Simulated scan of single mutants.
Amino acid sequence: MSAREVVFGFGAHSTIGDAPELLDMARLADREGLDLFSLSDHPYVGQRLDAYAALGFVIGRTQRLAGFANVSNLPTRPPAMLARTVTSLAALSGGRVVLGMGAGGLWERIADMGVARLSPSDAVDAFEEAIVLVKKLSGGGPPVTFEGRHYRVNQIEPAPVAPPPVWTGSVGRKSLAATGRVADGWIPGHAADWASERYRASRPVIDEAAAAAGRDPREIRTVFNFPGHITDRPLAATRDRDGRWVGGSTGQWIEELTAAVLQHGASGFMLFSPRGGTPDLPSLARWAGEIAPAVREAVAKDAP
């Protein structure tokens, strides 16, 4: 995926009982030309499918659909092993994997898994170290020795596979700056979108940190988790009193997302249900068959 390519996908919070439905949705998305799907990663919830086991299985049942954990629960997934997982998935699938990374949000439950609790500041430091280490353990080359505050490896051979794109779910200022320094994409937290104050306050932090590190901020894509209704008729108002998107007709979705790309630099959208859960199959079909192609066409027409 190039930084300028606009990608479309869907997100799921799948339990073990949802496995057949997840496969049906992935097959539909693959057939209709969506780019990727995501799974949440909460290993302390026994009913949830393990994100990486499910990603590998679903990617293996599709032809072009990429997958990612939105976002990986890093504290429970040591980065050296995570590097092996994602590079293996990339090798097996022809590169159809994105590495979603998070510092860890629900520390009460994370600690219940036997993981040492980190302070918020230390968790972000570990998060940045982990991204650097995963990239060092990808792409071939000589053995890697890495001595960080939180993670260390000694003379470990990198996988001869290009590192997958790394997208983060950064929220706090320190984490946003880390995204600017070392990541390839950002998923705004709490389903914030381009019209939100959270986005307006957060994206400049990423851009400033990227520029300070000698990077082009435009290369760090913004991918939005985007919940909402897809209705048969236009709605009188597509946003609520707080300015949050509620949905609308396919035409209203197309207009909104096209403007997000052309006016606000959006480079990806993940469909969720109105309450932030897994979308239903009819909505996914309209998203994949009507909305995504129309937005792609409108954006292409505006391209220089």
Score class of each variant (00 low, 15 high):
L176C: 00
L176S: 02
A177Q: 06
A177M: 04
A178R: 01
T179Q: 01
T179A: 00
R181M: 10
V182Y: 02
V182C: 05
A183H: 05
A183L: 04
D184V: 07
G185E: 05
G185D: 05
I187M: 07
I187Y: 01
I187Q: 00
P188G: 06
P188C: 05
P188A: 05
H190W: 15
A191N: 13
A191D: 07
A191I: 10
A192G: 08
D193M: 15
D193K: 10
D193I: 10
D193T: 11
A195T: 15
A195Y: 07
S196C: 04
S196Y: 09
R198F: 09
A201C: 12
A201H: 08
R203V: 15
P204L: 12
V205T: 11
I206F: 11
I206T: 07
D207P: 06
D207T: 08
A209Y: 07
A209H: 10
A209V: 09
A212K: 10
A213S: 15
G214N: 13
G214T: 15
R215P: 06
P217V: 09
P217S: 08
R218L: 11
R218Y: 05
E219V: 10
E219A: 10
I220E: 05
R221I: 12
T222D: 06
V223G: 05
V223H: 01
N225A: 15
N225P: 14
F226H: 10
P227A: 08
G228C: 09
G228A: 11
H229C: 11
H229D: 13
I230N: 02
I230R: 02
T231V: 14
L235G: 03
L235T: 07
A236G: 09
T238W: 06
T238I: 13
D240L: 12
R241K: 12
R241N: 13
D242F: 09
R244K: 12
W245P: 05
V246Q: 13
G247F: 01
G247C: 05
G248T: 09
S249T: 09
S249I: 08
G251A: 11
G251L: 09
G251V: 09
Q252C: 14
Q252S: 13
W253C: 11
I254S: 14
I254E: 12
E255S: 15
E255L: 14
E255A: 15
E255M: 12
E256M: 15
E256T: 14
L257F: 08
T258Y: 14
T258F: 11
T258E: 12
A259C: 07
A260C: 06
V261W: 01
Q263V: 07
Q263G: 06
Q263P: 00
Q263N: 10
H264I: 07
H264A: 15
G265L: 08
S267K: 13
S267L: 15
S267P: 04
G268T: 04
F269W: 08
M270C: 10
M270K: 02
M270H: 03
M270Y: 03
L271N: 03
L271H: 01
S273D: 11
S273L: 04
R275K: 15
R275H: 13
R275M: 14
G277C: 12
T278A: 00
T278F: 00
T278L: 02
T278V: 03
P279D: 04
D280N: 02
L281Y: 00
L281C: 02
P282F: 00
P282L: 01
P282D: 03
S283C: 01
R286W: 00
R286T: 09
W287T: 02
A288G: 03
A288C: 04
G289I: 03
E290V: 10
I291A: 04
A292I: 02
P293W: 03
P293V: 06
